[in-house]
Amino acid sequence: MALLEVEDLCIDYKTKNGYLKAVDGVSFSLERGASLGFVGESGCGKTTIGMGLMGMLPPNGVVRRGRILFEGEDLLRVSAEEMRRVRWRKIAMIFQAAMNALNPVQRVGEQVAEAMLVHNPSLGKEKALKAVEELFELVGLQTDRIRDYPHQYSGGMKQRAIIAMSLACRPSLIIADEPTTALDVIVQDQILAEIRALQKEFNIGIIFISHDISIVADMCHDIGIMYAGQLVEYGPREDVFDSPAHPYTRALLSSFPTLTGKRTDLVPIAGETPDLVHPPEGCRFYDRCQEQIPACREKVSRWVAISPGHKALCCRCEMDGR
């Protein structure tokens, strides 16, 4: 049984103009210890997926449809109380703003210990602090910094402390939403290495969300490309990168400057993302697509298998029999 199985997840936001379909029909599954990355630009719904999995949607967010099976249990059916238990204990989240979420007037070590005690009160404070020491070592923080306050930490250290906190209850799934965006490249590299090592050590499943393809490729075995609320391409990273099938994936890849290879001209994607309150009938990328054919506009795109494990949501690919 897969650790996490998401089927046809649809999440809407209530806005003054109507329901905005932020996530529309997303399905994927994740095995224990595996890693999956979601890449997309702002507004594509990748963060909403993470929030939806955690049951932490903003007040105007509603799950319209779908199932989130976590260890065989549908998280959309459980009570709020139950969900609170699952959250942090089994599913932990590391998000971009997390390092600013540390309480400035409490020692970092105590905050981590507290997170542990909330979910496991029988542990006792003594033991919890002892465990924090181990966690600090795990994430590469010096144990003598346990008694420091957040302002004495650098950005990278704070993010490490957040990772320590997320590991406190030994979760089986970690959702990392842009965990390193605010950090410098060198620190980012170290944090990513840390996450990778911990994932391996504890056999944790990771869902990694980022706008930066190169980071996701570096971190995850499988990659899902998102556009306008939909998953448009899914597959092992080698396949997605070396033979991208969906025109959006190709466009996205060619708009990133790289350090390697010959310097090629970047091709920006013209146009704007569609209105998600009234999304187009056919392919959502139609207006901006360089390879559009009339069918794309009329037909609802279907998933096409490109190679084992690699699929794309594209009419054109279907026609070409790719």
Binding site: V185, I186, Q188, D189, Q190, L192, D212, S214, I215, A217, D218, R237, F241, T258, L259, T260, G261
Partner: peptide, 10 residues
Amino acid sequence: LIDALPKFKG
């Protein structure tokens, strides 16, 4: 700095 860049490609 170059070492620290994500390395999957290249």
